[in-house]
Design a protein around this nucleic acid. Structure first.
Lengths: 197, 197
DNA sequence: GTCTATACTTCGATAGAC
DNA sequence: GTCTATCGAAGTATAGAC
């Protein structure tokens, strides 16, 4: 039996209207948070009718999934750009310190925790991105043997994310001291001169 | 003119029923996420009538504020217990690595980002807790002068939080390598023997 | 303190005309 | 593709009886 379960509605992929809904969803999620990510509020932000959203997305979960995929694609593009920068390690740090990306990542992580349908997609792309970053950092490090690129990536990503999200709340205690450590590390690791034996 | 704006309802502070609502709110927030934190679902989890919630809390924001305060008080108690442990630095790391606390902290941080009324309370207690942790770590460190307790606290807290929240999603890439670094640090910092001059 | 009853809004989603 | 019209459930919150 052919599983043609989807009997009634349509939906197009390359549509510009569809993209407007995804844009609006991203904006709502970033600015108002997860409880505001509703069909009505997304449509209002897009300047379109609520019911039209259901022509392009079967359910709200489908819209969120489309948003997740677009966020991930954009992150990969920016990652490649960072690797091509004059100081790639510093560019990676700045990529991970982007406030817009951090706010979205935080909300998406919250979605992944509680929505089975979204979790797989988020985890899969997070694993992919983590592997790419570890590989890149491993190539960029001064090869002094004792350092684990994976550990450094974990610490840097975690620290960047926390600093950005706390700063958005107006909480900055300890940030300056942590950034001093990061700067020292970036200076040391980015300059491939010989260190003392 | 006396501002006796609150004309109609009552509400008691030490009530046991009130505590049950807060318990239920914590459980709902941790297990189902922020969009599920509604009067109906909290009351259902508590096994009480929805309307009764409004006898104890004027609005949902009031309930969330009560939850925030209780989470903060409990965290301070656990912090004091960690300081009294045989290996305080390790106990602090484990406190920050508690999955229940991390899940709640993540959701509360999301609330703080988008709700003005809650933000102040969360930021205030986060600043207080950060200061206490930095002070404690500063006292516990081997005094080799070159280390910033504030920076170490930032890195440790950020790393613990990310590891726990990612592990809850089934994402563990890089965790083992990061934990090796933490263990090395804990071993080195917790043992107050003289290091090389 | 707890209950019933209720007002009004917003939610996701669908049917069917144009 | 976009529209009008609509459904039933769930949202916050209040009034008033017991």
């Amino acid at each position: 039996m052919d599983t043609v379960v989807q009997t009634r509605r349509l939906g197009l992929e390359g549509s510009q209207t569809r993209a407007r809904f995804i844009d609006a969803a991203e904006e709502v999620l970033r600015d108002e948070g997860l409880p505001a990510l509703t069909a009505r509020q997304v449509a209002a932000k897009a300047g379109l009718k609520t019911q039209l959203l259901y022509y392009y997305f079967r359910t709200m979960d489908d819209l969120i999934l489309a948003l997740v995929r677009r966020v991930n694609e954009r992150r990969l593009v920016r990652f490649e750009a960072a690797l091509a920068a004059p100081e790639p390690l510093r560019a990676l740090w700045e990529l991970n310190s982007d406030p817009t990306g951090a706010a979205l990542a935080s909300e998406l992580s919250s979605i992944a925790t509680h929505r089975e349908a979204i979790r797989a997609e988020i985890v899969r792309s997070a694993e992919n991105f983590r592997a790419l970053q570890i590989e890149a950092v491993s190539r960029l490090l001064v090869p002094d043997g004792s350092r684990s690129a994976a550990g450094i990536v974990m610490i840097a990503v975690a620290l960047a994310r926390m600093i950005v999200s706390e700063a958005a709340l107006g909480l900055t205690d300890g940030h300056a001291e942590a950034l001093v450590i990061v700067e020292q590390m970036l200076d040391r690791l980015s300059t491939p001169k010989q260190t003392a034996p």
